[in-house]
Write a protein that binds this DNA or RNA. Structure first.
Lengths: 198, 198
DNA sequence: GGATTATTTTAATCTAGATTAAAATTTTTT
DNA sequence: AAAAAATTTTAATCTAGATTAAAATAATCC
């Protein structure tokens, strides 16, 4: 029962489980996906999943942690690169979206946070709140440096995050489409922020 | 068992059921809400709901039909008013959002379409596809009349719809917030579309 | 190649919550 | 105010799908 000291194989397989689960949750909805559905995608039988997660709740939780990590990573990269506010926004959007529609995907939509057990729910909510705050900071930074139009950063952040969060609802792994999304979305979402002479 | 000839009372109560259900689904997620949760909100007991809907699947279905109606209604109003493309977009956004955060709300997020039975699923998908197409038409109209920046209407539409669809995830009925959303969102979402001299 | 550990399976449980049936209550009608 | 219709309740079922237990297979280690 104790896991392999070098956890590489276990971790890799667990990651495959999480991706399969994210795919199912995004496509069929949470209630619509049984553990059997997830197992089938991997050529396994449902009880095998319990080798990788304690239960279904933890499966969802881990999917969400993974989703949160992706967002944080994208934002950190963008901020680390520096540049003015609008530039950081664009880079963040680009990185986040690239990951979502790329190899690392699918990333789970956080639709069922309330179904998580309290500790998990609080953790995920906190992380995602923090993510929003960090995005708002970039916006404020951009307003201060004159690259972003003065705006309500809370509402603007909510609007942009909503767009991103919803992507997995309509993007289903078509690579042709993926390129288009990566090419178009950052622009579409950031154009309204740019400060321009009118 | 036969319903009252003037269905007004029945319909009104059923509408209350649908609103309560939408609220629960949005807050607790679909799997996280039992019929008892919905019934509790109305001071009823779960089997009472079966007087208004055939089963849980139909409850979800009706919530989605209601959500779709709201979107269609908002768009029809906006289009009927005429004006150039950007103006219609703004009006549509305003109307749709006003309804979502107003008295008619909460409106269910369509997160569980795949869980619907085939006929219902197909119908809801078709209606929502049509809604997207209609929005794209407005965008094209705006591009043609010079009020909207040339853009990929599919991606732009997806972005804006995503923002709107996600609203119920973070808006939980605070009226102060509702005013802010109505005041800010249409602008935030449409600003990037405006054709401006750069 | 035998022993130990890791992974998966088959075969049972177990349970929340959806659903149904029948009875009770409330409302409306005349 | 009795009868009929509408609405809701209480008390059982019924079931899909999550979970557990024990056994079987596969991989790794010495």
């Amino acid at each position: 029962m104790a896991r392999n000291p070098d956890e590489t194989r276990f971790q890799a397989q667990r990651d495959r489980v999480l991706k399969a689960a994210a795919h199912c949750f995004n496509q069929k909805g949470y209630s619509g996906t049984s553990l059997k559905n997830v197992a089938d995608m991997l050529g396994l039988t449902d009880p095998a999943l319990y080798y990788y997660v304690r239960n279904k709740e933890e499966l969802v939780y881990l999917c969400y942690v993974r989703a949160a990590d992706v967002g944080r990573e994208a934002m950190q990269r963008a901020v680390a690169e520096g540049g003015n506010g609008i530039c950081q926004v664009r880079q963040y959007l680009r990185y986040h979206i690239e990951i979502m529609v790329g190899e690392r995907g699918p990333i789970a939509i956080m639709s069922e946070i309330p179904s998580l057990k309290p500790e998990h729910r609080d953790e995920v909510l906190e992380v995602s709140r923090q993510h929003s705050l960090n995005f708002e900071k970039i916006l404020e930074h951009g307003i201060a440096d004159g690259s972003i139009h003065s705006c309500d950063v809370r509402m603007t952040g909510n609007a942009i995050m909503g767009s991103i969060n919803w992507i997995p609802k309509w993007y289903h792994g078509d690579t042709k489409m993926a390129e288009k999304i990566v090419a178009e979305f950052p622009g579409v979402l950031s154009r309204g922020l740019e400060k321009v002479s009118r």
